[in-house]
């Protein structure tokens, strides 16, 4: 691979922060680097120009998690943009994880938004490829995909660590952000997935949030490979979990939501239950407890589309409360 001249001359990049030094100072980063089990949750953006909709949902999540993911038109459905949601959240004192998808914006727009987000106090970003436009309700739109998740990861790291744009043009103040990526251990090609995770680390990822986990056996296999590769010491891995409301919803999700794999046994268990919603919640709590036992897992990421109250209950009943206090973190 060719090394550009400006990169070769840039010595700042060669003095990286050791793993225990803080790069962004975000709560998520501090919790993870203090060796505590982290909890993040997803905030689904409103179809509204009213900021109160964001505040109401954030209020429910704020006390039960360490950082709130602001999704970027997930499933290719248009909602309030993730960067503006992050602006509202930081303004109210919450800690967002700014999700960036490559589907809708090219490299020029993305780099500008990373700077803007950091200026507004965003300290975590999650670099995603993004679902295809066909998954949404405006499939006629032009898919962009100028960068992919790995080149996006490296771009953010270049901005942060080398203090420059992709063009080499210098930044006055680089964005101090904790950089994350996603991985889906439940989609083929299964034996490539751990190596792809390694590629994401090489591209610059520091933490990982996985796709919904419903198949604990598959996750164990994946994590075994991850540990064999030593990646559990290089990346903070948070496993994605979420409740299923009913067998019908499970069926719908696995056919319509890209990348979600739900084993038949799980659907059957839901179908056989008297109260499917309660069973779904119980299943999710059980999964969290199993996930916590897997070596290399450093946290969970709880997702439930527009059911923030349910997310809070699950985190509580899974025994993940109270969250570590700022005082505890400061003591370290």
């Amino acid at each position: 691979m060719q090394i550009s001249r400006s990169a070769r001359n840039d010595t700042t990049f060669f003095v990286p922060p050791p793993s225990s030094n803080l790069v962004s100072g975000s709560r998520l980063e501090r919790v993870l680097k203090a060796g505590r089990f982290a909890v993040t949750a997803e905030l689904n953006p409103p179809d509204s120009a009213d900021p109160q909709a964001v505040y109401d949902r954030a209020l429910v999540l704020a006390t039960v998690c360490d950082a709130i993911n602001a999704t970027d038109a997930s499933g290719a459905h248009c909602h309030m943009s993730s960067v503006s949601m992050c602006a509202l959240l930081t303004r109210a004192g919450y800690e967002p994880i700014y999700q960036i998808s490559c589907r809708d914006r090219n490299r020029i727009a993305i780099q500008g938004d990373v700077l803007g987000a950091a200026a507004m106090g965003v300290k975590n970003v999650l670099c995603l490829t993004g679902d295809g436009v066909q998954a949404g309700d405006q499939p006629e739109a032009k898919p962009v995909f100028d960068l992919d998740s790995l080149t996006l990861l490296r771009t953010v790291r270049i901005m942060r660590d080398a203090g420059q744009f992709l063009s080499g043009r210098k930044l006055d103040v680089p964005p101090r952000v904790f950089v994350g990526a996603a991985e889906n251990p439940f989609a083929p090609p299964f034996d490539f997935r751990p190596l792809r995770l390694q590629k994401k680390w090489q591209a610059g990822a520091e933490f990982i949030q996985t796709q919904y986990c419903f198949d604990i056996a598959r996750l164990r296999e994946f994590m075994q490979r991850v540990v064999d590769l030593g990646l559990h010491e290089k990346l903070y891995i948070l496993v994605g979990v979420g409740p299923l409301r009913s067998a019908r919803v499970a069926e719908w999700m696995r056919t319509n939501v890209p990348g979600v794999h739900i084993p038949d046994t799980m659907v059957e268990r839901l179908r056989g239950a008297e109260n499917q919603a309660r069973e779904g919640k119980k299943l999710c709590i059980e999964l969290i407890q199993q996930v916590r036992e897997i070596p290399g897992v450093r946290g969970v990421h709880v997702m439930a589309y527009r059911q923030e109250e349910l997310v809070a209950e699950i985190i509580d009943e899974a025994g993940l409360l109270p969250r570590v206090t700022e005082k505890d973190l400061a003591r370290r």
């Binding site: 996603a182 989609a187 490539f192 890209p258 990348g259």
Partner: peptide, 9 residues
């Protein structure tokens, strides 16, 4: 740089 997370079963 590799497959996305949306690959079907």
């Amino acid at each position: 740089n590799g497959p996305c997370g949306g690959v079907r079963a």
